[in-house]
């Protein structure tokens, strides 16, 4: 439209521009500061040696397992929330979303309350019967990360379920596809973009987890010290490594944003 921006009501007051630019600067300035401090020439050595490489390795493994747990548990939960009408559904949804707004440290304390070996709700029982100790173990890191990542996955996949036109599955039924075939061949395929977005955002959240991890699993180098914890510690002893690790996390998050953008705009189907 050639008269764009000239309609009455579409004129943008000056203070909007000023505010918008300030907001953008506010968000971008720290990123610029981070990038400026990265020692590019030594970045490879920084992240492939010492505690930094240990932390990256641990973070990668635990976040992948945490994302798998979030996917396996989150997909059925998203299904139930999106498609089954039951009393108290909005209540359940609110509870599911709670870890998204809960301070992560509180999440960690809550996990201790549930799985702590001596005082947890089922922690002692897990230890007595299975010899499982979650606290201060890599498994505890996975649990903490999955706890904070799961709601993100559920949210993305639930909205994915809601956006599927039910007539696709109904027509598949009239084509002779039974319930499980319909799920694997039709529903899951239509759900793929949301699944990818959900997995990406859950993984990014798991990778960046700090508060719940340090509270519940501790900060043991090579065992429970994930990348965010290492960044925090290295800032004192080896700032160069801290900035290098921060850059790695930043790059991963940008990649995740790109992956989600592609799927949300439906380019993958």
């Amino acid at each position: 439209m050639s008269t764009r921006g000239r309609r009455v009501g579409a004129e943008t007051p000056a203070f909007v521009w000023v505010g918008a630019v300030l907001a953008l600067l506010f968000l971008l300035l720290p990123l610029a500061g981070l990038l400026r401090r990265v020692a590019w020439s030594g970045i490879f050595d920084s992240v492939t040696s010492g505690p930094a490489s240990e932390a990256l390795r641990l973070s990668f493994i635990t976040s992948v397992f945490a994302t798998m747990i979030a996917l396996l548990l989150g997909l059925p939960l998203a299904w139930v929330l999106a498609r089954i009408d039951f009393r108290g559904r909005s209540m359940v949804r609110a509870l599911v979303m709670l870890p998204m707004v809960l301070p992560p440290v509180v999440g960690g304390v809550a996990l201790l309350g549930a799985y702590g070996k001596s005082h947890g709700l089922i922690g002692g029982w897990l230890f007595d019967i299975f010899g499982l100790q979650l606290t201060f173990s890599p498994l505890g890191v996975v649990i903490a990360e999955a706890f904070v990542a799961l709601p993100f996955l559920v949210m993305a996949v639930e909205s994915g379920f809601r956006s599927i036109d039910p007539r696709f599955e109904e027509s598949a039924a009239t084509m002779g596809l039974g319930p499980s075939m319909r799920f694997w061949k039709v529903t899951l395929r239509l759900l793929a973009p949301s699944l990818i977005a959900g997995v990406a955002v859950a993984w990014a959240r798991a990778l960046g987890e700090f508060g719940a991890t340090i509270t519940f699993a501790g900060n043991i180098e090579g065992r429970t010290q994930t990348t965010p914890l290492a960044v925090y510690l290295l800032l004192e002893s080896d700032p160069e490594a801290a900035y290098a690790l921060s850059f790695v996390l930043l790059a991963v998050c940008i990649a995740v944003l790109i992956a989600m953008r592609g799927s949300w705009m439906g380019r993958r189907s």
């Binding site: 007539r167 598949a172 009239t174 596809l177 239509l190």
Partner: peptide, 20 residues
């Protein structure tokens, strides 16, 4: 008898061909 076991042919008002 559920839909997938009835052998009916159904055409909806607008396209529901599987897009993928």
């Amino acid at each position: 008898v559920p839909a997938h076991m009835r052998n009916v042919g159904m055409v909806f008002q607008d396209n529901v061909l599987l897009p993928f």
